[in-house]
Structures are given as structure tokens and as C-alpha cells.
Design a protein around this nucleic acid. Sequence first.
DNA 1: AAGTGGTCTAGACCACACC
DNA 2: GTGTGGTCTAGACCACTTA
Lengths: 245, 245
Amino acid sequence: MAETARQIADDLRARISSGELTPGDRLPGEPALVRDYGVAKETARRALTLLVDEGLAVRRRGSGTYVREFRPIPRVANKRLAKDGWGAGKSIWDADLGDREYTVSDLQVYESEAPRQVARLLELSEGEPVIVRSRRYLVEGEPVQQATSYLPAKQVRDSPIAQPDPGEGGIYRRLADLGLEPVRFSEELRARMPSQEETALLAVSAGTPVVEICRTAFTADGRPIEVNQMLLNAGVYVMQYHLES
Amino acid sequence: MAETARQIADDLRARISSGELTPGDRLPGEPALVRDYGVAKETARRALTLLVDEGLAVRRRGSGTYVREFRPIPRVANKRLAKDGWGAGKSIWDADLGDREYTVSDLQVYESEAPRQVARLLELSEGEPVIVRSRRYLVEGEPVQQATSYLPAKQVRDSPIAQPDPGEGGIYRRLADLGLEPVRFSEELRARMPSQEETALLAVSAGTPVVEICRTAFTADGRPIEVNQMLLNAGVYVMQYHLES
DNA sequence: AAGTGGTCTAGACCACACC
DNA sequence: GTGTGGTCTAGACCACTTA
């Protein structure tokens, strides 16, 4: 009788990976497990919690617990290179935005002091002013990503970059207008579990990590011109990179 | 009285982010929480579980629950480009392998049939033979990564690539010897929670995701020559990419 | 209204760590 | 041995979903 919750979870996991239960299917509920395995409700609950924590199942209050579905959105880091010679877009997870579209929400643009980390990356002194552009991206009404850009205020303050709408082509086009076109990018990625606030911000379901990306953009002469900190709902994204050596 | 477990977790989380409790510190244990908050043991336990699931805390049986530490190892996707013009190795998470070293463990080399996904990426028919190279990487004795490479058997079967020790320079050097040098790479990343087996395989602690990477290597004429599927302990890695546009 | 998940209690027994 | 986490039970009450 030892490890009953784990045993039940193992059973259910086996039924999922065998294909008996497919994504979207309803799992046996807590009362059903209590009946079938003769355990206490809390034990049945713990079994389901294990699957939820693994990201295999999703709970819907009042309705049931379901096998999770995964239909990822591709995030292509370097679109320009992604043309051909890289398997022409072949993917293991058949990632596809399809007809879904990005919507920008909660856009905020303001001037502020550079946080310590950002100041270091931008080669600024601590507390130097930066233009901050923060926004959330939605797909089909669901928040999937939060992004905050930092640019040195002294260089972009008087440009459209400091305005909510930077105009056609976005801030990179405007940087080019200023002779500060970014041509090299450095990205750092880290995956972790979200905090409480982040869970709400990105509507992340239990058992789903987030991916934190910090991207620094450099001009042709190697000077950092923008730092972009992103937070992605990992249940929704596949990141793609194309590299040349 | 509502939401007691979450309340307690919030308190502890606040004490962590305020710096009162720093990485490595011992959190109040279950008995202490029972006493201080006047709750049942299971409730105190649930509070700590919330923090563990967020990756903020680690449990050590018989000892206590501790604030987690994060000292990441950098995984630089394109070392050759990483020289300069990219902030000279500046990093937000001060990732550093330091004097720690990689060890290879559980190396297995064998011929087998290509799994469906791999066959598609390698442009092989389903079931065509591939050379499989599977290994685990350890750092300071701890497993941090699992990697499995697939190469078309018809092209590499008679080379050192099919041997456990492919010799100086590794399999990429040997591919070059065969006129099949990989010059372009495509990587797909996904973060998720590990399965039971993966948790054991990589010694992942609770509340830590894994990162699944699928890398396809292409020769100069754009033909796929290797697929490498990796699984990283996300609590230990920071991924770095350098891109040119 | 019935069914499902969400939270909590008060007790039990076990396994492991540390002194 | 004492303290810590690990698992489980049997009951309670609540909130939400679905029909």
C-alpha cells in the first residue's frame, strides 16, 4: 500500500502515454479514484496533483481533470536567416501560429532610471535614464508573453521611440533612422517556474514553466543599444534558432 | 481563515524576496508553522509545497526546507561567434562554468531504426537505419544533461562515428573528414516539467523544469546530417545565443 | 440539484538526518 | 533519540460548473 498516490498517478500516466487517454480527454475524477482504489479523497487528489505538476493534466473546477493539449506557437529568433538550408521549416513539435494573431496589450512607455542589471548590459552608469517600453502580447485573447525594452534615454528620448506608437517598422526601423541600427543580438534564456504574479500575468496553468529571455541588441560598431527582457508562457511556445558556424 | 496555506506561503515568499531569508537559509519547518500560525500540519506542509513547486525552496528530508540557490552553467550555442561585439560575455545571471568540468557518463553507441520524428528531420524513410549516440553529462558528479544524436547509418556506419570513441575533435571533425562538415544548425527549444523518469535521470529537484532541445545539423549543401535531442536540467543552465541579422 | 474540484482539520505512522 | 519531512485517513465545508 506504500506510495499509493504515486501508484495511481503511474497508472494514469501509463494510460495517457499508451494513447488510451488522449489530449483533451477527461481523467477519472477524485470520487472515481476514491471508489476504484479505495483511498481517501486527499490521496486521490494528490495523485492528480502529481500529473498536474508534471504538466500532463489540467484541472477545471466543477468540471473535471483533463489531459493537457500542447499546440505551440513558434518563436523564430532570426527570421531573416530562417529561409532555407535549414530543413525548410521542419519542426519536431509542428509549431504553427496558423491564423492566430498577436495582439499588443497594456503598452506602457516612460522614462525611468536603469535597473542595475540593465545598466550594466547597456554600459550605462547606474541610475542613468532609460526609455522603458513594456507590453504584453495576446494570442486569441490569451496572454502569452510579457516584454520590457530598455533604451538609453540620451540617444532615443527625442525620437518616436519614446512615443507609444513608434510608427511603421517599429523601434528597430527608428533606430536605423538614427544611425543606430541593431545588427547583432545576444540572447540569454532561462526556464523556471513562475511566481504568483507571473502566473496571473501570463495566465500560466499549474505545472507550466515560464521562459525568461534577455536579449541585448548591438549596433554595427558593437555598442549595446537595447535590452529586451521577455517572459514567455512555456506551455505555448517553441523557440527556434538558426545558427551558422 | 480563507486561503491559509497561500497566506503562509506569501509571508515566506516576502521574507525571501526582502532578503531576510537568503539562498541556502533554512525556512521555518512544518512544526514551527503549525505553532506560529495555529494550523494543521497538512496546511503548513501545503504552504511549503507551494514554494517548492515555484522552485523557490528545496526540501531535505530529516533536515529542513531551504531557500534554493541558483548558480547556472552557461550553454553557448555558437561559441565561434561569441568572441566580441556581443558585450564581451556580459550576462545577467553571471553564468560561469568556473573550474567545474563536464564528464561524460553512460555513453551508448548502437545502430537502430530511425524514430519517426528523427526520420523526418533527417529526410530518411521511416525505419531507415541510424547510428545512435546517447550519453549523459555530469558536472561535479551531478547529472545535468542527457543527449542523444542520430546520424544516417548509410553515411557514417563505417567511420569512427559508429565507435564509442570517435577520436580527437569528436564526431563533427569526423563528419568533416567524410566531406560532411556541418555548417548550419537549427535548434528548437521547449521548456516543460520533467516526467518521473526524467526527474531521476537528471536529478531534477521538485519545482524545476527541463529544457528539451532538438538540434539539426546541416552540411554546406543544405542536407541534414545529424539530429541531436537534448534534455537539460533547467535549474542548472542558462542558454546563450548570438545572432546576426 | 448533483457533481466536481479546493481547502482545511486532527490525528496516525514511517523514514531519514543530525547530534 | 529527537526533530524533520513523507504519506495517509476520514471527515467537514465551500465554490464553481453543468444540466
